[in-house]
């Protein structure tokens, strides 16, 4: 039960993007479509999972003062692994996510979970925490991507909703739509949080 709560907290109650306002750069930058949002979310989840696991294993071996630099090295290694693997096996997605893949390393969410959770808890809980937070992040990005794709291109995951119509309200695919869409999704999540609490 406790683990289940630990797992689901990232979905709504502590949603990393809409409630904690972490990782806003990739959330705004790559979500021009639902698919890109999903890809970025899963890439971040993988890094989070790897770093949380390793950090909770080595937490007792690392002297306190060099804790942060060690965590940074661990996170950066996982980011590079994702970067190389994606370039090899998903070159199209790699291209559309571009700069934001190496920038996972400065995503406050990843560092935040390593420092605030994994360095204080055992491996099991750290993995559950990473899964929950990662999926919450993925959910957030896919939703924002979905909203922008539906309004901006009248399609979802590349499937046209209105046959023959390809041009939607373009502003939602462009930069302003990202900010405005996120603003309204924050309102929605604040409402949901109040409802479920």
């Amino acid at each position: 039960m406790k683990q289940w709560k630990n797992f689901t907290k990232g979905f709504i109650k502590d949603n990393p993007v809409y409630i904690l306002l972490l990782g806003l750069c990739p959330a705004l930058g790559v979500t021009t479509s639902a698919f890109n949002g999903l890809g970025m979310g899963l890439a971040t989840t993988f890094v989070l999972l790897g770093s949380n696991t390793v950090v909770s294993i080595i937490k007792n071996l690392i002297p306190n003062k060099v804790r942060i630099p060690s965590f940074i090295v661990v996170i950066a290694s996982f980011v590079t692994i994702v970067q190389l693997t994606m370039e090899a096996y998903m070159p199209d997605l790699f291209e559309s996510l571009g700069l934001f893949i190496p920038l996972i390393v400065v995503n406050c969410l990843v560092m935040g979970r390593a420092e605030a959770f994994a360095s204080k808890n055992n491996i099991g809980s750290s993995i559950v925490d990473a899964m929950g937070m990662g999926l919450g992040f993925t959910l957030a990005l896919t939703m924002l991507g979905g909203v922008r794709e539906i309004l901006g291109a009248y399609s979802i995951f590349g499937i046209q909703l209105i046959p023959g119509v390809t041009d939607g309200m373009l502003v939602f695919v462009l930069a302003p739509g990202a900010f405005i869409g996120m603003g309204y999704l924050i309102i929605l999540f604040n409402y949901l949080k109040k409802k479920t609490a």
């Binding site: 630099p69 590079t80 190496p102 390393v105």
Partner: peptide, 8 residues
């Protein structure tokens, strides 16, 4: 090693 060295 670009990402790792840059962040350090």
């Amino acid at each position: 090693l670009q990402t790792i060295s840059y962040i350090l």
